[in-house]
Amino acid sequence: MRRPSFGAISLALIPFLAMCFSVSAWDRVHPMILGLPFNLFWLLSWIVLTSVCMWGVYRLEAPQIAKAEGRRENAGRAQ
């Protein structure tokens, strides 16, 4: 069982820090951005940034995943 790399885990923790634990820092009305209250604008931006972070995680993990799958296929042939 392969564990995700340190880099991947750290990158995946960023959305949790930004959208969950830091709530008292961004839960405010002002400054309003694009006509939205600051907290709503912050969360909407982080929805997009969460996808960006997870795309980064995917790219970081992809080589290891491919390697692991190759290994399994080889093992399958050996049997």
Binding site: P15, F16, N39, I47, T50
Partner: peptide, 24 residues
Amino acid sequence: GGPALYILAYLPLSYVVSFFISPL
């Protein structure tokens, strides 16, 4: 009012969790 925002946060974060668990 404000507390409703939790919905905007928990759904995206649930995919962060499922990225790691669902393939396994």
